[in-house]
Design a protein around this nucleic acid. Sequence first.
DNA 1: CACAAAAATGAAAACATTTGCAAAACTATT
DNA 2: AATAGTTTTGCAAATGTTTTCATTTTTGTG
Lengths: 340, 340
Amino acid sequence: MTDKKQNKPDIVDVARIARVSISTVSRSYNHPELVKPATRKKIERAVQKLGYIRNRAAQVMHGRRSGTIGLVVPTIDNAIFAELIQSFSDKLDQHGFTMLIASHGFDLDREYKMLRKLLEHRVDGLAVIGLEHSDPTYQLIEQQNIPTVAIWNYNKSSALSCIGVDNAEAGRLAARHLISLGHRKIGLVFPDPSGNDRAYDRLNGAVSEFRTAGIEIPENWRLEAPYSVREAKRASILLLEQGHRPTAILCGNDIIAQGVLYASNHLSLKVPDDLSIMGIGDFKGSAEVEPSLSTIRIPAKRIGLMAAELISDTIAGQHADITAMKLELRVMARHSTSRL
Amino acid sequence: MTDKKQNKPDIVDVARIARVSISTVSRSYNHPELVKPATRKKIERAVQKLGYIRNRAAQVMHGRRSGTIGLVVPTIDNAIFAELIQSFSDKLDQHGFTMLIASHGFDLDREYKMLRKLLEHRVDGLAVIGLEHSDPTYQLIEQQNIPTVAIWNYNKSSALSCIGVDNAEAGRLAARHLISLGHRKIGLVFPDPSGNDRAYDRLNGAVSEFRTAGIEIPENWRLEAPYSVREAKRASILLLEQGHRPTAILCGNDIIAQGVLYASNHLSLKVPDDLSIMGIGDFKGSAEVEPSLSTIRIPAKRIGLMAAELISDTIAGQHADITAMKLELRVMARHSTSRL
DNA sequence: CACAAAAATGAAAACATTTGCAAAACTATT
DNA sequence: AATAGTTTTGCAAATGTTTTCATTTTTGTG
C-alpha cells in the first residue's frame, strides 16, 4: 500500500524488482525461449510478489491482437441463443479469446451502435445473428475488414460469411410434416418478423409449402406472439377457444410451441389427438415435455462452435474466406403431432 | 485501399484530413464544448470519410476507463443465469459499459483463470456468481481493488460485496411450504453442491427445516441431478417407480422441478393429487407449465439490475462500499402442490 | 483601432508495452 | 588465452490517445 504509486504494478516495477530490463520481462512473456531459465525465475518471483497482470491495452497499441471477439445478439435471455452463446464462448476460450457481448433487443439501430462500441474495443473478430442488418451496419463491417461471421441463418448469396441453417427450409419441413400427417386445417403462431429474418424466413417457407399443397391459412388462424411461453399461451388460448379451430398448429419456435401446448392442456384439449403441435428449433427440454414436442432440429451448439472455429481460424490466417456454410436440419417427429 | 497505410485510420489521419491538430480532434470527442462548431464539423466530416473509430486501448493507457465490466458465470446456457445476464448487461449498457463475459462450467480453478484474463483486459468492474470461490480468486480480487460484486447469493458476513438472496432461506421456505401442506414423506432432487454454494445452501436450508419439523429424508429419496430437464426427468422416474414413494418432492431449482413434473406425467401420476412438486427459482415459464409450478420466486432480473447499478455507481465513485444487499424471496404457491 | 480578456488551437509529454538492433556475456575451439 | 560464434540482455523507438501548458486567434470595450 505504501508503494511509490497507488496504481497497478507495471512491467517497469517488475523489471526493477527482478533487476532486469523491461525488455527482458516482456520477452519472458512473449518469447520465453529467448530468456535464460534463471532469469525467468527471477521475473516470475517478481510478478508473484507484485501481483502483476499484463496490460492488454498496451499490447493492443502495438498492433497485437486484443484477444477479444465481439458478439452481437438480439437477446441473451432466450433458450436458443443461450445455447449458441455458450458453445460459441467455450470454443473461443479454447482458442484463447474472450467474448465481448452486446445485445440490442431486436432493434437494428441499436445493433449498429453496439457494433461500433465493440469496434472501439478493437475486437479481433465479430459475430452477428442473422443476415438482416441495417445498411450502416453492413457498411461498417465492410469498412473495418475484421473477420466477421453471420450466425444462425444461411443464405448462399449472403454478403457476409454465414454459418447456420436455411430457415425457410425449416419452415417448409415443419409444414410438410403436418401435411404428411394429413392436416389441412392449420393455425400459425409466429413471432413478429420485422428485424428478424429467422422468423420471417420460417414463416414464408411454411406458408409457401402449405400453398403448394393447396392449403390456405385463414387470417384469423395466423397469430403473432413474442418469444415467451406466457404470451404464446395466452394468445393461442384465444385461437383455440373459437368454435371452428385448426387440427394442427405450426409454431415459429419451440417456446411458442410450449405455450400452445400448455394452452391446450389448460383447455383440456388432448395433444396430439385433438390438436397436433409442431415447433421449430428443438430447444433443450423440448424432448422432455409431455407429450414430447415434434419439431425441427436446429443444431445450435454446432452452429456456435463452428462459428467460433471459423472466426478463430480466419484470424489466425488459415482460411481466406469461407463464405457460407449450411448445417442440416432434421425433422424430429415426436408425440405432439399425429396422423389426423 | 491505396491509403498510405493498410491499417485502421488514426486520430492523426483524421487531424490531417480535417487540417487541425490531433489535440483538437481528441478534444472534439472528449470536450466538444471547447472546440468551435465549425471545426467540429470539419472533424466530423473527416471521421466520416475515413471511417475512423476511436481506439479504446489507447485511451485506457491514459488512465481512462476501459468501459468494460467483466462477468464470470458458471454457465450462460441456463434459464436462471440467462435472465440475470440479460438484465445485468442491459443496465450496464445504459451506463455506457460493455460486458466481457467468461464462463467456467462450475470449475473454480477455471474461474480463477478467466478472472485473470478479464483483468488483463483491465475491466473497470467485476461480477462473479455466488460466494464460493477458490482462495487465489479471493486474493486476486482483493489485490486488484477493482469494484467487485458477488451476485446471487447473499451472506451478511461475506468478504465481497454481494447482492442476492439467502439461498438457505429459499430452501427453508420451500420446505416450510410443503410442511404446511401436511407433507411428511418428502423426496429431494438437487444439483451437485460442490463448487455451487447456491445449491448447497438451499439443500441445507431445506434439510434443516425438515429436521426441525421432525422429518428425516431417507437416503434413497435424495437424488442428485444436473441442471437439465432431461436428466432430472430420468433420475426422478427411478425414484417415483419405487413402490414406496414420497407424497412431495422438493427440487433444487425449477428446471429440475420441470423434469420431475414430466416424469410424473410420464408415469401417469396426477400432480398435485398423487404428488406435490415444489421448485426454487420461479424461472420464465414456471407459471405456464400445466399444472403451474409452485416455487420460490428469486428476482433474477432485479438482482442483475441492481448488481449492474452497484458496480456502475461504485466506479463513478458514488458509494464507497455497500457490502451486502439482500433481496426478498416470495413463496409462489401455484398448482403443483396441494394439501395432503 | 488598440488592448485586454476570452476562446480556440497546437506542441509535447505521458501512458505500458513490444521489438529491431546493438552490446554484453557466455561457450567452444584452436 | 585468444577468437569466433552463440546466447542473453538492454536501449530506444514506436504504438494511439489524452492532457497540460503555451500560443494564437477571436471578441468585446473604451
